[in-house]
Amino acid sequence: MNRNKDRRTSVNGTDAVWLDDVRKAYGRGESRVEALRGVTMSFTRGSFTAVMGPSGSGKSTFLHCAAGLDLPSSGSVVLDGQELNGMNENQLTRLRRERVGFIFQAFNLMPALNVEQNVGLPFRLAGRRPDRSSVVEVLGRVGLAERRKHLPSELSGGQQQRVAIARALIMRPAVIFADEPTGALDTQTTIEVLQLFRETAVSGGQTIIMVTHDPVAASAAHRVLFLADGQFIGELEAPTADVVAERMTHLTAWQQTRTTQSTGRGGFR
């Protein structure tokens, strides 16, 4: 990751997402909280990256800023070649709808819609008729082609998460943000979901950015980025679960020490 790259590199398409000196603060005066402190990160197209950090490290704020769900207090974010600063809410909504997919720990499926209808929902939200061939194709990719007429209540938790993944993939977004996507899944289903993420990145050329607390899940990514106390701390290429877990132990202790030493300075807690 080149922290000194030219902005044009990201705008012209080398990176799917680029954060440049991003800061995010909430509140004012003594109640001011800095959630991100000058974060610079880049995510190349077709990569699968895990983002980790102790509780209170700024992971959720990072995801919201990177995905255009929230705008930074300063700094800039480039998402699929689009500079988010200066966009109005309608423009941001359109960008997220057309170029971004979201997967969460809570599956967020519509209980009254069957699998096929849930997956096709992004088409309807965009004012378009669902492309049935695309829906069937993406359901085949996640192993649910035979379940397309089932309701969410008729599926296991792992199957429901696969439906959520298919829904995120259906519009062929440039970037997929996954927030603790395996937190509610059993071990075998977790392995299958993570394998699907890698295949999506490598074969589909889509960029996967996954926030997780699980070293095993993180070890499935091409690399892991670490946040602590609202700052980018470091990264691991070709990570293993043991090395990730060890790094997280050190980061948690480091953040706790900083919190104790700097209580009252308005940092993120």
Rank of each mutant, 00 (worst) to 15 (best):
T61F: 02
R247M: 00
S203I: 08
L227Q: 01
V33I: 08
E146H: 14
Q195T: 14
L236T: 05
G205Q: 08
R124W: 06
R96T: 09
T9Y: 06
A238M: 12
S219K: 10
V11A: 08
E83I: 14
G267R: 09
N4L: 14
D179S: 09
A245C: 09
L121T: 10
E137P: 00
F197I: 13
L139F: 01
F43A: 11
R269G: 01
T40Q: 02
G204Y: 04
E116N: 11
V136E: 14
T200K: 05
F123N: 05
E154M: 15
R223L: 04
S156W: 14
V33C: 02
V17A: 09
E83P: 06
F123C: 07
G38Y: 00
A238D: 15
P111Y: 12
T61D: 06
A253P: 03
T93V: 10
R247T: 00
L121H: 09
L194A: 04
G183I: 07
A35S: 11
R147N: 11
D70E: 15
A220I: 02
T187F: 06
L95S: 06
P130H: 07
G56P: 02
V193E: 04
L169E: 03
T9I: 15
F232D: 05
E98M: 08
I103Y: 01
F123K: 05
R258Q: 14
L144Q: 03
P239Y: 02
G120C: 07
N4G: 09
A245D: 11
A241D: 15
E146A: 14
S73H: 04
E235N: 00
G68M: 09
R265Y: 04
G46L: 14
L155R: 08
N88L: 10
A221E: 09
R258Y: 07
G264S: 12
L169I: 08
R99D: 13
A126K: 04
R97N: 15
A35D: 03
Q161N: 13
